[in-house]
């Protein structure tokens, strides 16, 4: 489709002999929330890395608003309006929550090094404007309590949220979230899901989300894309995809198991 915000066209990626992505095509329309699911090693994070420019695909194109951005450097991709949170927390650990969010706003800073070193009035105005936006975001996500704390020492769930907040601070058009709820307790997961649903409503975001938890996926996503061994095996609304035989096979294997009584084991 031509009006897609982001489009992958026949993207293939391999490391030496190992195929990570094979002929994957995918489009995301503005305002859409798409979930990517698949077993471990299916190529979900590789897909993100291709979009962000960390990996260059062997073949195929990545298009942003119709323009070819394949192989663009990550910091240039970020400047186009693509934000990302990472699966394994990639926070600036020795900095405070506020500094992390300010770094998220880095690409909005217009001052140069010299005005920063001389602390010109223009720089102060710029910096204050960034701080105002960062504070607003902290209010929105209830992060004020952690404002001046080093993020490395904060609880896991909070760190995950700060990752999302930092990506949001850049005011991206498209937000890529790599397992925003991974490793969380049920309560933390619920909180994260509510937060993401609220953000979607309030900020009118387009999102591409990698997530394993189908409960989260079905509430959050308009569409679900399923990857298995680097191949896209399904693409559709959450309900339909969950019942797709190919998807069930990818997750559970092809052998039909005899229904077993799942009674508690009795210790001798």
């Amino acid at each position: 489709m031509t009006n897609d915000l982001l489009a992958l066209e026949n993207v293939s990626l391999s490391f030496r002999g190992l195929t990570a992505l094979s002929d994957v095509s995918l489009g995301i329309a503005p305002g859409e929330v798409v979930a990517v699911i698949g077993p471990n090693g299916a190529g979900k994070t590789s897909l993100f890395n291709v979009v962000c420019g960390f990996y260059r695909p062997r073949s195929g194109t990545v298009r942003w608003r119709g323009a070819d951005i394949t192989g663009k450097a990550p910091h240039m991709v970020a400047r186009l309006g693509i934000g990302r949170s990472f699966q394994n927390i990639e926070l600036f650990k020795s900095l405070t929550c506020l500094d992390n969010l300010l770094l998220g706003r880095h690409l909005h800073v217009k001052s140069n090094v010299f005005s920063a070193m001389l602390s010109t009035r223009g720089w102060v105005r710029d910096e204050v404007a960034q701080r105002r936006r960062a504070e607003e975001l902290m209010d929105l996500l209830d992060l004020q309590a952690y404002r001046d704390q080093r993020v490395g020492a904060l609880p896991y769930g909070v760190q995950k949220l700060i990752e999302v907040a930092r990506a949001l601070a850049a005011e991206p058009t498209l937000l890529l979230l790599d397992e925003p709820a991974a490793g969380m307790t049920v309560e933390e997961k619920d909180d994260m899901m509510v937060t993401l649903l609220r953000l979607r409503r309030e900020l009118d975001l387009t999102m591409l989300v990698v997530e394993h938890d189908l409960r989260v996926v079905s509430r959050l996503a308009d569409r679900v894309v399923v990857l298995d061994h680097g191949v896209k095996i399904a693409d559709g609304p959450p309900g339909a995809v969950q019942d797709d035989p190919a998807v069930v096979r990818a997750y559970l294997g092809s052998t039909k198991l005899a229904p077993q009584a799942a009674g508690p084991e009795v210790a001798p």
């Binding site: 962000c52 960390f54 450097a73 990550p74 910091h75 991709v77 970020a78 400047r79 934000g83 990302r84 990472f86 990639e90 926070l91 600036f92 650990k93 020795s94 900095l95 500094d99 770094l103 998220g104 880095h106 690409l107 930092r166 990506a167 850049a170």
Partner: peptide, 15 residues
């Protein structure tokens, strides 16, 4: 500091 702490995230912040 960002390049020191987490270079991947620094790049995705436009650095």
């Amino acid at each position: 500091r960002a390049t020191r702490d987490a270079d991947l995230a620094a790049q995705m912040s436009g650095i």
